[in-house]
Design a protein around this nucleic acid. Structure first.
Lengths: 221, 221
DNA sequence: TCTTTTCTTTTTGTATACAAAATTGCGACA
DNA sequence: TGTCGCAATTTTGTATACAAAAAGAAAAGA
């Protein structure tokens, strides 16, 4: 097989290892790969038409990010969390999200306002037609827009990482169209409070949004 | 060469890749490897008496953690930050540290209190004899003890990561014995405020500690 | 002398081979 | 029937080989 960093039709110039990492991240995010599932190196290599080397690199990086965990004995698994662990992760996520909301509310620009609003429009649209996977994407854009609005890529990256890690668990709570609509309504309040440019209000509002999200997630898992 | 996950005299059972990762992390933390320095795969392989494969794995994981960065063109480098980037990183670190202090103050146990106190004793001892590298280690233990006191390994891990990332920059501000003593005195106040078990006080105190640390770091870099 | 082109060397990404552990399955023996 | 031990298989970690791409150096032309 040729070296993989080839020019692709889509113009992307990723290496095979990066492509595999992306693909796995995506499958985990959408819940396609379930927490606790074992990832077999040779199996993945066959699936992606590559050798074990780039698969190994992808798995290693995902492990370093906490998306995957190395089993005590054998194999790499999609990270799986107990109730206790989930609430610890959400506690940490609470803190980061609240900090993002606070900072974002202090640094809002016309651009970031419109990015957040645009994402919210997409959320409402997806919720109204009841398209779950479209809503998941729009919801992610919405939160990423808030992270970007902090103007701080480092805290934004941490927040995104937690979002990726909790993705498969949060995804479970969106079942019915009403779930989506309720989430979108919660966004609306959040936007109001962040756009108020009062950092304490923004932070408090994000905390309440996250608490609600957490409770629903716990119920669904 | 034999497979590397051998039983070692020190009882450690790390793979070669893990050992290389640790070693590099250590050298970066102590400032032995400078920000901006290029890490050559074959050179490292020779240095560690291994092949490129485990070196590659270590570099890949450190890159995923943001300790190293992939240069646009060629090579992996120790992450190097501009003034602007440094202040963004410290802003994020502020938030995490403040959250840790707040949570820790709410969840103090006898064990975590004594761990923090023990680390502080070591800090004072190192500062008094003016042993820089010993102080660096004791200081790290001190902050790790606070992170552990949160009872939340996830937020503790984020905090540790930021500490590792900023290590080479913070290290520069400890030059004279007086620098060490001043830092140790700052710790003492911090301990008081965290042990007061008033979360707002603890958080505020950590913010002021971090702000001071940041300003000194900026001056030194 | 400066630019452009071509050749050489280095570097990077991947494939494959192999050896050491660990796991599993099987059979012997109690 | 249960369990202990041993061989077969799988899995993991590392070494090595190789090909593509990029960087660097040297040579040719203006």
């Amino acid at each position: 097989m040729l070296k993989s960093a080839t020019n692709r039709a889509d113009g992307q110039r990723h290496s095979m290892a990066q492509r595999i990492e992306r693909a796995l991240l995506d499958e985990i995010g959408t819940g396609d790969l379930r927490p606790g599932q074992r990832l077999d190196e040779v199996g993945l290599a066959r699936r992606f038409g590559a050798s074990r080397t780039p698969v190994r690199e992808a798995l290693s990086r995902l492990t370093a990010q906490g998306i995957l965990v190395q089993g005590e004995r054998r194999g790499v698994f999609v990270a799986e969390y107990s109730r206790e662990e989930l609430s610890q992760i959400f506690e940490a996520m609470h803190e980061i999200e609240a900090a993002c909301a606070r900072i974002a509310s202090q640094r809002l620009t016309l651009l970031s306002r419109s990015e957040i609003e645009a994402a919210q429009v997409a959320c409402v649209a997806a919720a109204e037609i009841g398209d779950r996977s479209q809503y998941l994407r729009a919801n992610e854009s919405f939160h990423l827009a808030i992270y970007r609005a902090t103007g701080n890529p480092y805290i934004a990256e941490i927040a995104s990482e937690f979002r990726r890690r909790t993705g498969p668990f949060r995804a479970k709570k969106f079942e019915t169209r009403d779930d989506l609509l309720a989430s979108a309504r919660s966004h609306a309040e959040l936007i109001n409070d962040i756009f108020s440019e009062d950092s304490a209000t923004a932070s408090r509002s994000m905390r309440s949004h996250m608490t609600a999200s957490f409770l629903e997630t716990l119920r669904a898992n």
